[in-house]
């Protein structure tokens, strides 16, 4: 239980946290606790002044995504894309900043909000940035989310977004390799069900390592802030 509770505190999203999290790199547990406390105290400062996203003195770059501690390597998984061809997650995204999200189409709230934010960001960001970014959506609900539906859904946001599916076992295994508890179905009645899933987008740099995650509650502006840096300067947080 304690392990779970600590894990819950690890990912502190939002810019207030990033400085604290970056500064602290000792043993796992201590890192978590210190970061939590530091983050909370920083909050006072962050809230005190202007709430603008552009801090005047930004050396080093201040990520708005939440730091992943410790960073982890992009899983070596092969799923199937919406044109029913095999998609090797690592090989087929090599060299791109890769934004991986696991969700499901009947999700009315968090999943489409992430995609909607990314859609807006892709409209506003220069092509020189977006052409180096791959957005990869993997369904956690392969029973209902057939490839043509996934394609149609993603196309409503951006025709370039990649959609993947697999057997439930494959999708579950991918989630485990990402540190996510495999999705579970929650009955809603009337034949409907919800699927529990991680609510964050995982960002892998061109080094194939996940350094940042973007939880529910961010906006398109978060992507507009962080993506150019990830693409142009790479990960420089460690």
């Amino acid at each position: 239980m304690q392990y779970v509770h600590l894990r819950k505190e690890v990912i502190m999203s939002f810019k207030y946290m990033t400085v604290a999290a970056r500064a602290v790199r000792p043993a796992y547990v201590r890192r978590v606790l210190i970061a939590v406390m530091a983050g909370v105290s920083l909050l006072a400062v962050a809230c005190g002044g202007s709430s603008s996203a552009s801090a005047p003195t930004a050396t080093p770059f201040s990520w708005q995504g939440a730091l992943v501690t410790p960073p982890f390597v992009k899983p070596n998984a092969v799923l199937t894309d919406t044109s029913n061809k095999p998609f090797d997650l690592r090989k087929d995204t090599q060299g791109y900043v890769t934004l991986l999200y696991i969700g499901y189409l009947h999700c009315p709230d968090i999943c489409p909000q992430h995609m909607s934010d990314l859609r807006q960001a892709f409209i506003k960001l220069p092509v020189d940035v977006t052409k180096h970014v791959r957005v990869v959506f993997v369904t956690a609900d392969p029973d209902r989310d057939r490839p043509d539906l996934i394609r149609k859904w993603l196309d409503s946001f951006n025709t370039g977004f990649i959609g993947l599916y697999g057997t439930q076992a494959q999708v579950d295994a991918l989630q485990v390799s990402l540190g996510i508890e495999p999705a579970q179905k929650e009955d809603l009645g009337g034949g409907n069900y919800a699927v529990s899933h991680a609510a964050y987008v995982i960002a892998f740099g061109t080094d194939n390592v996940a350094h940042l995650v973007y939880p529910s509650g961010i906006t398109a502006d978060t992507w507009i802030h962080d993506l150019p840096q990830l693409v142009n300067a790479g990960w420089k947080g460690s």
Binding site: R7, V10, A66, G179
Partner: peptide, 12 residues
């Protein structure tokens, strides 16, 4: 393995 991520977002 190693990577854990969580919903700490919620509490915090």
């Amino acid at each position: 393995g190693g990577a854990f991520i969580a919903a700490g977002v919620i509490t915090l």
